[in-house]
Amino acid sequence: MTTALAHPTAEPRARFVDLAAAEWLKLWSLRSTGWSLLVAALAVLAFNAGKAWDNVRYWPEGEPGYAERFIADGIPLMHAFTTDAGTVMMLAAGAFGALAVTGEYSTGLVRTTFAAVPARRSVMTAKVCVVATVMAVFGAVVAAVSFAATQAILSTEDAGVTLDHPGALRLVVASALLAPVAALVGAALGTLIRHGAGAVVGSVLILLLLPLVLDEDRHWSAVLAHAMPYVAWMRLGDSAYHPGAVPYPWTTGGAWTVYALWALAAAAVTVTTVHRRDQ
């Protein structure tokens, strides 16, 4: 008995599933989480449905073949997820990822977290997995509902398309994955900056403003532009794209690669940076 008291059993290390559950609870314990996602979803849907409704409202009556030309030009897919909606999606997702990390720094909860679980990389890996999962589901729901709603509106003039239309599924998947990619970039910036406002501004600069200053008419600038998630999403969503229509064309495979590299790089920064810094 004396020996057992002198050498107490070591406390088992936290399992990864427990860390993920803890991050899930911390995320959803904030009332603002659900409301922010709902507002972002409604904003994205409003932009897309509003654009489709404008076309139906001002539809030229008595013009034979207009609906066929409308579909042939790829306009139904352009309205299924507009550039305005993509911008809102990236803004919301980037801010979500940034605040998911910086919220713990602003409240001081990060010290408690790392004191309870010294394995910082495991904690941040769990956070990355939770943020990516939540935003992937969010993106999938918003993209699917948006596609269904816009095509239902356009179908009142026989101008809607189905998911098996060329380019439609690619557009929906690319739009859905835009959310987790942007959220992971925001989380990486949150880990580096550790300040909510700074991380949100940084995500806006990198995800949205930087692509605007890059010109695709020059080779070096086109290469940089093609490496940005926003431009990759536009490439994947452009069903009417023709390789010879731009000076420096690129492939859909390259755009998918950009998605993957940004997500992996952002996750790596989030997980590894915190191990080398104080709380």
Rank of each mutant, 00 (worst) to 15 (best):
T272D: 04
L178Y: 09
A168D: 00
R218L: 11
A21P: 00
R121C: 06
M90W: 08
F81H: 13
V173I: 02
G186E: 08
A159Y: 09
H79W: 03
A72S: 15
D238T: 02
P243S: 08
A176N: 00
R111T: 13
E157Q: 13
G139R: 06
P8C: 03
T251W: 09
D158N: 14
G253V: 10
A222Y: 07
T2P: 03
M228I: 07
Q279F: 09
F147V: 09
A245D: 14
F96V: 02
A266I: 07
V110H: 05
G160K: 06
W35E: 01
G202K: 01
T125K: 04
H242Q: 15
S175F: 03
T125W: 04
R13C: 06
W250E: 03
N55V: 11
D73Q: 15
V201T: 11
L27D: 05
L45F: 02
D158A: 09
A267F: 00
A85T: 02
A136T: 15
S106E: 15
R235H: 09
F114N: 08
W59C: 03
V17I: 11
R276I: 13
P8A: 04
V173Y: 02
T270G: 05
K51A: 13
V213Q: 08
A143F: 06
S29G: 14
D278P: 12
A266L: 01
G86D: 05
W24A: 07
L109V: 13
F138C: 00
T107Y: 10
H7G: 01
E216C: 01
T251P: 00
V141E: 10
V130Y: 06
I153E: 04
V246K: 04
R194M: 11
L264R: 03
A136R: 00
A92T: 10
T3Q: 15
A40S: 13
A245E: 12
V213H: 06
S32R: 12
G202M: 10
R31E: 07
N55H: 13
L109G: 15
A116P: 08
Y66A: 09
L37V: 04
A268M: 01
D84W: 12
V213D: 11
E63Q: 15
S146I: 01
F138S: 01
A41H: 12
P76T: 12
H195L: 04
P76K: 12
A263G: 09
A4V: 12
A72L: 10
G97N: 09
A159E: 06
G34Q: 00
L30M: 12
P8E: 10
A41V: 00
P249Q: 10
Y58T: 03
M228T: 15
S122P: 09
A199E: 11
A41M: 11
A268Q: 03
M1F: 12
R120Q: 12
P60K: 05
W220T: 15
A260Y: 10
